[in-house]
Amino acid sequence: MASVSTATVVPAFARASRATPAAANSGDARAPSDFTLTVNGRDHRLAVDSRTSLLDLLREHLALTGTKKGCDHGQCGACTVLLDGRRVVSCLTLAVAAQGRAVTTIEGLAKNGELHPMQQAFIDHDAFQCGYCTPGQIMSAIACVNEGHAETDADIREYMSGNLCRCAAYPNIVAAVRQARPAMKTASRD
């Protein structure tokens, strides 16, 4: 069951200066856009600047800081999230353009404290060092398996190439995806 929260981005004094909340299309480019977004199963009613990226929305407005900013230009994959189940870079996704859709972030994977098989596999294979790219790697890896692009090591390497890891944990990431693949299939059958 989805719950509803309201996250407001407009700082208090700016909102006070405006008599009525501006709707999208009002002709004022700086007016916030109102929309709803589902994040990790929870509906959020939002009023944010049209320029706000999905990444900044998650981090600065919804306190979901697991998703990381590494380049803000779609060049590193650290901000990867699932949008309606497909992996995307949240830095190049305008939050307002994601309205009405379902976002899954790293915080939405573990259920009742039990790690997702991919999270456990990343631990087992030490598939990170500093850990900064890790949420993006894990989100990407889950999609990689779901897409059917994790059947061979060569495929995993190619389809995980959108996620840079400066610590260069790449071989361990491949091993983790390899381990999680059957576990994910089992889980999806259950």
Binding site: G74, T80, R87, M160, S161, G162
Partner: peptide, 9 residues
């Protein structure tokens, strides 16, 4: 071209 994420978008 690009990456899996960008190709999805």
């Amino acid at each position: 071209a690009a990456s899996a994420q960008l190709r999805n978008m």
